[in-house]
Design a protein around this nucleic acid. Structure first.
Lengths: 352, 352
DNA sequence: CGACGCTGAGACAACGTTGACTGGGCGAGA
DNA sequence: TCTCGCCCAGTCAACGTTGTCTCAGCGTCG
């Protein structure tokens, strides 16, 4: 901890166009024109104004500008994700930021922690700041509270999950199909007893993935057994416990399908702790960093997060550019990545 | 891809206080008072105003409010990080968001990608939106361009690296000491030939960690050998290549110190690819998820990112609350986490 | 019973900017 | 040479809100 020097905080108030105008000897409006690159201003005056502005350290006030301006645009969008710190949300945020950046638009970020009340609260906070649009990974199942905002011109795109009770654009991953692909992959390796470990079914994506799991079993004529099905919630610890329980059953599964990032990691942890990582097959939904470096590598159904984020951002900006076509839900495909854990056969050579 | 229904976009403009006032039969100022919880308003009138507001779907316009208001606060702060998608930045963002949230403040996020030009550009974009304060992980070494903003009342705290040519608060990790601890740990396991793999020394934290490495060797009376020192840049691929080169030398190191997240992961990848992960000792700077699940687990010098972020946010808000004390740099301690890779002894039993 | 103070709501201007309009000066055409 | 029109800078008001001031009404106290 080092000490700094004097505290010279004049707290001088920020210069305005008025002061720049006075120093340059022109009208305020002329300064405005210069900063808006209006071409009909005499180059000599432009130079004089810019010099005055630099000298004063003038920076235009975008909030005042957007207030007066016809379109009322703030060049800011809002982004509500589950948790800014988790890799999925972080990648999504960065992707949206990239698209926004090309248009000089900044991104306000908020984390919802799967709390619908917080979703409403933060959405309102964003609306109160008059963001031009919203990108939302919804926590709740009812977004009707946004109808009024939609009607007054706030554009919005939902990501990962569709909006409930609201007609809005959405970009989602192929959850059901992805889950089916995961289970089929395990079936192909000879497994007949495949456990499902997932998030609470209150979360739409979890419900869809669970649905895919059941469907794939049904098609394969395998009876559903809720002994080996756990909806543990998204905590890693809960997933560890659920995995250990399921694997300790008298008739344990020979394969696991985990339907969410943290659940997958929890399951991997449990498998390693029990020394079963090379015995029990495992496919997870959602890729994660270093999955390939573990031993065995963890096979996953990977979502194309970048594609999801980019699509959502592009849809939003198309709306902001005046697109009035009917709302759409775009589904982004998932992809199976084989890394070893999902290819462990049902019975080891020489085993029962 | 499903089709939505009709496109009912009246694009009706948003209701204002004026309309609420008209509907409630009161003056605009009274509506203002109601929404600012001024206690001297008749409860009956409050009810009438709130009802009118709800009926119209009125939401206060914070940009107009902050324009007129005395303090000019926007209840928004700006956060500039290296890359919103990387775990360090993401955790930092989330932590700052948490502190801001308690005060009803929202966070604008921007990624700099280690580009000083982009830093200036984004900092200006934030200032133009009149954020109340800035939290910056600087990309460049010269922040003097912010002096004007500082003088006009924009508060700022630097994170991970101190500001250059600017007197400002900062929160940094114990980079040099951490590096020394890492090297000492390897020395204790008997290693005398310890490679350094790090980011470009243009990045201050990398320079400090490198400095710690050299210092620790010097104290141990080990000659510095730049054959086993690589400043690879932060790309994972570059780190893989550098690691492979160093380990392919005629006289290869018996231990690695990697001074940054991605470099560490690249080195792990290379060690695994060469089958040396149980032979060559390795300590990385900066923790990463799943480091404990690898085999061997990767020993690291962990930064307390949450502590760093929280401290920075709290310093910023203290400034915003009027703290005028001299600027400070707070150093947050790092911590060695032993997981196996750093404890591999210099010579395997029966070797050499 | 009158004056005074207090309570609570409204009128007005202003925050920093830009849209709409105005007006002066100059060149071109008659 | 005079007029018309154009070009460019300036004046004014307004965006949605709040700080300051005013004022009506009522209760209280002498």
């Amino acid at each position: 901890m080092t000490q700094g020097e004097a505290p010279p905080r004049p707290a001088r108030s920020r210069p305005t166009m008025r002061e720049v105008a006075a120093l340059a000897g022109v009208a305020i409006k002329t300064v405005s024109r210069v900063f808006n690159d209006v071409p009909t201003v005499d180059p000599a005056i432009v130079a004089r104004v810019r010099e005055a502005a630099d000298q004063l350290g003038y920076r235009p006030n975008l909030t005042a500008s957007s207030l007066r301006r016809g379109d009322g645009r703030t060049a800011t969008i809002g982004m509500l994700v589950e948790d800014a710190a988790n890799p999925f949300s972080a990648t999504l945020t960065r992707t949206v930021e990239n698209v926004a950046r090309e248009r000089g638009v900044l991104v306000l970020v908020g984390s919802l922690d799967e709390d619908p009340a917080r979703e409403r609260e933060l959405a309102r906070a964003l609306v109160d700041r008059r963001v031009d649009g919203l990108v939302i990974v919804p926590a709740g199942r009812d977004q009707s509270y946004l109808i009024a905002e939609q009607n007054t011109g706030t554009r919005m795109v939902f990501v990962d999950r569709e909006a409930g009770l609201l007609d809005a654009d959405a970009v989602v991953s192929e959850n059901r199909q992805g889950a089916i692909a995961a289970v089929n992959h395990l079936l192909k390796a000879g497994h007949r007893r495949i456990a499902y470990l997932g998030d609470r079914t209150a979360i739409p994506t979890a419900a869809q993935r669970f649905d895919g799991y059941r469907h794939a079993l049904e098609v394969a004529h395998i009876a559903y057994d809720d002994e080996i099905v756990r909806h543990a919630g998204s905590g890693e610890d809960a997933a560890v416990a659920a995995t250990e329980q399921v694997l300790s059953l008298p008739d344990p599964p020979t394969a696991l399908f985990t339907s969410q990032n943290f659940v997958t990691i929890g399951a991997v942890r449990a498998l390693h702790a029990m020394g079963l990582q090379h015995t029990v097959a495992h496919v997870g939904f959602d890729d994660f960093p270093l999955a390939d470096l573990l031993s065995p590598g963890v096979s996953v159904i990977a979502q194309d997060v970048v594609q999801v984020g980019r699509t959502a951002a592009e849809m939003l900006f198309r709306r902001l550019d005046g697109d009035e076509s009917p709302t759409r839900t775009v589904t982004v495909p998932t992809r199976l990545i084989e890394r070893g854990s999902g290819e462990i056969p049902a019975k080891g050579p020489g085993n029962d």
